[in-house]
Write a protein that binds this DNA or RNA. Sequence first.
DNA 1: CTGGTTTTGGATATTCAAGTACAGAAAGGT
DNA 2: ACCTTTCTGTACTTGAATATCCAAAACCAG
Lengths: 200, 200
Amino acid sequence: MARPRMFDEAAVLDAAAREFRVHGFAETSTERLCEAAGVRRSSLYNTFRSKDDLFVRALEHYVSTIARLQAAILEDEALPGAERLLSLVDLVISEEREAAERGHAAGCMVVQSLMSPNLRARDERVARLLDRDLRARTSLLEGAIRAGHLDGTVSPALGPGDGAMLVNTVISGLRVTAQTGADAGTLRRIAVAGLRSLLG
Amino acid sequence: MARPRMFDEAAVLDAAAREFRVHGFAETSTERLCEAAGVRRSSLYNTFRSKDDLFVRALEHYVSTIARLQAAILEDEALPGAERLLSLVDLVISEEREAAERGHAAGCMVVQSLMSPNLRARDERVARLLDRDLRARTSLLEGAIRAGHLDGTVSPALGPGDGAMLVNTVISGLRVTAQTGADAGTLRRIAVAGLRSLLG
DNA sequence: CTGGTTTTGGATATTCAAGTACAGAAAGGT
DNA sequence: ACCTTTCTGTACTTGAATATCCAAAACCAG
């Protein structure tokens, strides 16, 4: 019927997310995006309406990738609740370590976006996306915490709601602290200390 | 001898920091900065060499303002160690609440800058500034924690070094979580839970 | 007053990035 | 084989943002 695409949309979104993470939205030119993705401008603009749209799609892609990994851990019925939380922390730490080793320090795209009021104000979709992501992760965390309450590995001192927020807050904090050059071992000690209220 | 300046340098830095916080570095035009500060372009460029330099100065200004407030709390000999840490948390929470109430959500400039790899890569001075700030705050925190160890209000489970990093991490996390719209009461509960290893 | 020095205002280069236009290429159903 | 449809490459337009230039103004020492 028509000429097929010569590139993989998901691969472009991956490359775009990487560039945005490393250089930030405003300082990533479309030319850079093209180079990084190995695609010409018209293809980009043909597939994604604008730089803004591409960013939204890339963030969406990034978020859903991360979310999938986290869900696999947090819903793993084979693990007791507390272990799920610790595995999540380890996942985050290894993500940060990887990013740090890859040369440019590139923090988590979600935290970056949350800390860029402009991005959220400029595009309603970004705000909604981040909000949805937060809700989804919170709900996963609540599930794991409830499981921990039942199997006795998570202290009942905190309810699932506050517990989930605590985990979220500690993880965000870790992602910031990681940018200061802290090594994986230190990050893990801090995380365990921060989750003391849950882990007992 | 020469024509005197018609504006206050510190006021300009204040206004600039506010704009940078709300809109981010790249998306704050020099025109906006001029308007916000009530100063003409040539005055800006005459006083501060470039937009980059102005940003560095503004960040410096912001950091030293915050640091002064925090030092006053953390070195307050009248307070036991644990109270100092809690007061610091309350200070942070009230900063975030104020920012949130002022319309545009504008997160902490330090966390914002830490999460913008580009900013740090682009200007060595920003990286150094953030590093110095981290070190200074860490050292203040260690002092307060040591004081708490001595007066018995802070658990010796964590050493001063790890304790300081924990507080820093929790505070950064709070500053991110604040951007998701959490209210002051919730933030405080989370903070107390996160600092359990020190306070408990 | 006056000369020297710095600031100020406004206008103006200069650069650069986002997005568009359009012609031609690659399918593939009919 | 043809014709419709979508993709691709290049060149261009347009707009905006940083930075500079220069003349006029303000100040003060001598």
